[in-house]
Amino acid sequence: MTKLLVDTDKYGDESPSPVVAAFHATMHEIVRRRLEESGADWKDFVLSEANTLITKEDFESVDKALVDAGHRYDWSAGISQKERPDAYKPAEGTSDADLETFCFKHPEAPVAEPDGDGRELRGVGDNVVRYNENTTGTARYIRSTDRVLKWLNEGVPENTIAVIDDSGGTLTAPILEQFKGVICAGGTVRSHLGILTREYGIPCVMNAKVNGIMEGDTVTIESTARAKTAEDYQGQTKREVTANVWRTARRD
């Protein structure tokens, strides 16, 4: 069998990701096969003949092999799942109907019974900017372009605290300014969404570990909490810096 350089790597083993490992193993097979077919030395093959002998169809076969074996990809961009629903895991919590029952359920979210003020702890997050007051509003999930488009045309309902798992700044770009607050289940205070909420002066917690907040619940973000810094993230301050997220009333 033709050997590739990667076959004699003294220190590297296979990729830690099963999908990457599977793809690359198949890729190695294809490269070996095409090199043998060419009959060329590697250095004459790699940046010339390989460009035409290794084809788009070869790469399609890598993808097809894994999907045919039953693997369904994680999706991050809604368009990916929408265009290839058979190749990706199902999309949940993206339609209005889904949101009747959907909620984020982070396994590490601290939860507690209501306190004396009726505040029921439903999780924590990293506060982006410290404000003088906590922020209370109505939780509304945003996980699809359909909802953004609807609110772009109709206006964001008043008092909305957006509950998002996308730490980027593009999904909600045309309506972000209208949010009263943001609870983001991903990223850090330095993610694009964190940067933009800071610019707009919108209270926001990032990297939120929340559980059980339903569409329409009244929630309060502890935006008076200390903002999380780079030193905090790197463990240099030896302090736990989180902001609480409470539910103060269930939806009707």
């Binding site: 999908v19 990457v20 793809f23 788009k56 790469f59 993808d63 994680d74």
Partner: peptide
């Protein structure tokens, strides 16, 4: 292009950016 589904891309990108791949 056919390789670039969301999951493979996420994992392959992570490996090459933080140095966890074989190379």
């Amino acid at each position: 292009r056919p390789l670039l589904n969301d999951e493979y891309s996420r994992d392959a990108l992570g490996e090459i950016c933080v140095g966890t791949g074989p190379s």
